[in-house]
Design a protein around this nucleic acid. Structure first.
Length: 197
DNA sequence: AACTCGGGGTT
DNA sequence: AACCCAGAGTT
């Protein structure tokens, strides 16, 4: 549901959906039309159809077997509706795998920190961001959940698309964009109160 | 690499 | 009126 849809829009619908479809089995045993109906108003209805297909794929073998998603990103990636980002999200958040993820938030943060000159939307830039996400992962897999979550949170709350709150960003000291922005006279006014003592 | 899929809030 | 959003699949 969160693919290209804001958390605020998704959250209430997600609770409703889970009440109706608490398990992968319940989705798999339903008709596609029922899942699409539960999706009404969210848009991007291919997501609902892909979810239904994935539910049927992972519940295929063993009607009573516990339906579980694969734990490795490269395997998750093969399921319908699960692309590079969602595979990384499930693998690192649900299974604690040492795997990078790049969503719109992480892409923006990494680009502003490491590639201040690069142009977004370019394929080469996109690949470079995934490479950066991979190389900046903590070495211990136990720290990856927090690392990935933190990058996303910084993008969602601090380093937002239209407003960069560099004054409260923990990456300020290493950021290729913040150093220029903070030093500019206009943006500096925001950080000015901190300078008073 | 470019297009398409959505709806709703924010700027 | 544009932009933006925890992207993915198809052409």
């Amino acid at each position: 549901m969160l693919q290209q849809t804001q958390v605020l829009r998704v959250e209430p619908r997600w609770h409703e959906f889970l009440a109706q479809f608490p398990t992968l089995h319940s989705i798999a045993s339903a008709e596609v039309s029922q899942v699409e109906e539960a999706w009404e108003g969210l848009g991007y209805y291919a997501r609902a159809r892909n979810l239904h297909r994935t539910a049927r794929l992972v519940t295929r073998d063993g009607a009573d077997a516990a339906a579980t998603l694969p734990s490795k990103a490269e395997v998750l990636r093969t399921l319908p509706g699960i692309g590079r980002y969602t595979a990384g999200a499930v693998a690192s958040f649900a299974y604690g795998q040492r795997t990078p993820l790049v969503d719109t938030n992480v892409a923006r943060v990494l680009q502003r920190v490491f590639l201040p000159k690069a142009r977004r939307k370019v394929a080469a830039t996109e690949n470079a961001l995934w490479e950066l996400a991979e190389r900046s992962l903590p070495l211990k897999s136990g720290a990856v959940w927090t690392h990935n979550q933190a990058l996303m949170e910084i993008g969602a709350l601090v380093c937002t698309a239209r407003v960069m709150r560099c004054g409260q960003c923990p990456l300020r000291v290493v950021c290729g964009t913040a150093s220029r922005v903070v030093l500019s006279p206009v943006s500096d006014a925001v950080a000015a109160p901190r300078r008073q003592r």
